[in-house]
Amino acid sequence: MNSHSRISAVSAAPRAPKTQVAIKPAEAAGPAQTSGLKAILRQTRYVISENPITGFAFALFLLLAVAALFGPWIVPYDPLASNTAMALKPPSWQFWFGTDQLGRDIFSRVVIATRLDMTIAVTSVALVFALGGISGIAAGYFGGWIDIVVSRLADMIMAFPLFVLAMGIVAALGNTVTNIVIATAIINYPLYARIARTESNVRREAGFVMAARLSGNSEWRILFTQILPNVMPIMVVQMSLTMGYAVLNAAGLSFIGLGVRPPTPEWGIMVADGAGYIVSGEWWIALFPGLALMLAVFCFNLLGDGLRDIVDPQRRT
């Protein structure tokens, strides 16, 4: 009974226009008179109550944030202190997630690792957001040589298997956290540049852009004050979606021995450490960091869907 199947049956009309319900602006705008922040909070509350999964994702995100910010104060043990007497203990009341081959508490390590993994993800996404976003909207708005440079650069990056490219970058630049951030940013660049380019391209001929020109705005000013705010929402959604990918990428690089080095607690390294022990029955070493990784990625992806609902006015019926 969905509307698409019904519409496709209308012979004269392969595409039916959306039925519009006229809500009188006066009443539609009544409560929206309040400030922007309040409106966003109201919208957020609405989306969460409509879609409990988004609420779940927000809760998960809060958990990650708490672990990242206050990790050192919550953990019961020093994540680096080895205690060979307690090595390879299964999960218990004393060690919630068990201990690894050096007797380190896995729970403590998983919680402490949150900060590092989140930092890598957030900084790399912020970097690519700035670079990809700005070059993308400029490409879409001005066209010409800027467009050619940006689009071909994106094509070039897309031509590589992305994880292999990231490996190559880290291997070439050196094995540091900074380089993981750079590599993660580079492989995400095409996504951001292309979305920003498309979104600004459809708006370059819009009436409000011409009006801004008449108001005496220079082209760059129009780009930043008129186009950018309109491209922002979809970029923010994209940010959340790539966050999960960035976490996975950072952990993946560490897993194969690039980037973060032991004994620093990091989910990827911990999974790599535990991988050898699974066959001998010590499953908890790899499972819990892997679970944390999975939940983080899951959380960001769900959050992306939720954010899309929040920023997309089309969904505000």
Binding site: A9, V10, S11, A12, A13, P14, R15, A16, P17
Partner: peptide
Amino acid sequence: RGREMSMIFQNPRAA
């Protein structure tokens, strides 16, 4: 729809 009743929309290019 289409056989007994049919419709013409506003924007012919979109249809």
